[in-house]
Lab assay of single mutants.
Amino acid sequence: SSGGSSILDRAVIEHNLLSASKLYNNITFEELGALLEIPAAKAEKIASQMITEGRMNGFIDQIDGIVHFETR
């Protein structure tokens, strides 16, 4: 797709992000992006959206560029 990722790509990214949230206590956007094979800024945006929508527990430290995952 030309304008970003398809629905399937997005679903795969979100699935992998949720998997990462179970493996890590926290991770930088750079590391997360590398893990998900997407730019760091996109990793931040998707993580932020999932947390806001209540689909993933955690919070974002924008100063240090880190996602902190919280286990249920």
Rank of each mutant, 00 (worst) to 15 (best):
E53P: 00
S48C: 11
F69W: 06
H15W: 09
G33D: 00
E37P: 01
R72E: 10
A34D: 07
S6V: 13
L17V: 06
D9C: 07
E44W: 14
S48P: 00
G54K: 07
G4W: 03
N16M: 15
K42M: 15
S6C: 13
N16K: 15
S1V: 12
A41P: 06
I13W: 07
K42H: 15
E70G: 14
E53D: 09
Q49Y: 06
K42C: 14
V67F: 05
G4P: 13
G54E: 04
E53I: 05
I63T: 10
Q49N: 08
H68G: 04
E14W: 05
I13P: 01
G58A: 12
F59K: 08
E30G: 07
S21H: 04
Q62Y: 15
Q49W: 06
L32C: 02
Q62E: 11
A40R: 06
V12I: 12
Q62D: 09
E31N: 07
A40P: 12
T28C: 04
E53S: 09
Q49E: 15
I7R: 10
H15G: 10
I27F: 05
E14D: 04
A11N: 09
S5L: 08
A47Y: 03
Y24T: 04
I27E: 00
Y24P: 01
D64N: 15
G58Q: 02
N57P: 09
E53V: 05
I66W: 05
D61H: 07
I27Y: 04
A34L: 12
L8M: 11
E70N: 13
D9T: 06
A11H: 14
I60G: 01
S6M: 10
R10Q: 14
T52Y: 10
V67W: 02
I38H: 01
E30I: 13
E30P: 05
G54V: 02
G3V: 12
I46M: 08
S48W: 13
R10W: 14
I38W: 03
S2H: 12
I51C: 03
E14N: 03
I66Q: 06
S48Y: 12
F59C: 10
E70I: 11
R55Y: 05
L18Q: 05
I7M: 12
S21A: 10
V67C: 03
F59L: 06
F29R: 02
S48R: 14
P39F: 04
I66F: 06
L17G: 01
Q62L: 14
N16I: 15
D61L: 08
I60K: 00
V67A: 03
N25M: 12
R55N: 04
L36G: 00
E70H: 14
N57F: 14
D9F: 04
A40V: 07
I27N: 00
E53K: 05
E37D: 14
G33A: 10
S21Q: 04
N25A: 13
L8A: 13
P39V: 05
G4L: 07
N26K: 15
P39E: 07
A41W: 15
S21Y: 04
V67I: 15
S48H: 12
G54F: 04
T28Q: 02
I27P: 01
I46N: 00
Q49V: 07
L35P: 00
S21E: 03
F69V: 02
L18R: 06
I46H: 04
A43C: 06
I66R: 15
N25W: 08
L23C: 10
R72N: 12
E30Y: 08
H68N: 06
V67T: 02
E31V: 07
E31G: 06
N26A: 14
H15D: 09
E37K: 15
T71H: 13
I7L: 11
G3E: 12
I60P: 00
L36H: 00
K42F: 15
E30K: 09
D61R: 07
E31Q: 10
I51V: 05
E70K: 10
G58I: 03
P39T: 12
I63F: 08
S5W: 03
A20W: 13
I46L: 08
R55E: 03
Q49A: 09
A11V: 10
K22P: 02
A20P: 00
E70Q: 13
A20K: 06
A43V: 12
H15M: 14
N26D: 05
A43D: 00
A20T: 07
L17F: 05
E44R: 13
A47Q: 01
I46Q: 01
E53L: 06
A43E: 00
A47N: 00
D9Q: 07
I46T: 03
G54Y: 04
E31F: 07
T28M: 02
A41V: 09
I46E: 01
A34K: 14
D9H: 06
N25E: 10
I66L: 08
T52F: 13
I66T: 10
F59D: 04
R55H: 05
S2G: 11
H68K: 05
D64G: 15
L18C: 08
G4A: 12
L17C: 03
S1G: 13
K22V: 07
G58W: 10
G58H: 01
T28N: 05
A34G: 06
L18E: 04
E37T: 08
P39G: 08
D61I: 08
E30S: 08
K45G: 07
T71L: 08
D61P: 01
N26Q: 15
A41Q: 10
E14I: 08
L23R: 10
V12R: 13
S21N: 02
N26F: 15
M56F: 09
M56T: 02
Q49K: 07
I66E: 05
D64W: 13
N57H: 12
G65V: 03
Y24G: 03
Q49H: 06
L32F: 03
L36M: 04
S2F: 04
S21C: 06
T28V: 02
R72L: 11
E14G: 02
I38F: 01
T52Q: 14
K22R: 12
N57Q: 11
A43K: 00
G3D: 13
S19E: 14
G4D: 12
G3P: 11
L32Q: 00
V67K: 02
I46A: 04
S1C: 11
P39H: 06
P39S: 13
N57G: 10
H15L: 13
N16E: 08
A43N: 00
T28I: 02
K42G: 07
E30R: 08
G33L: 02
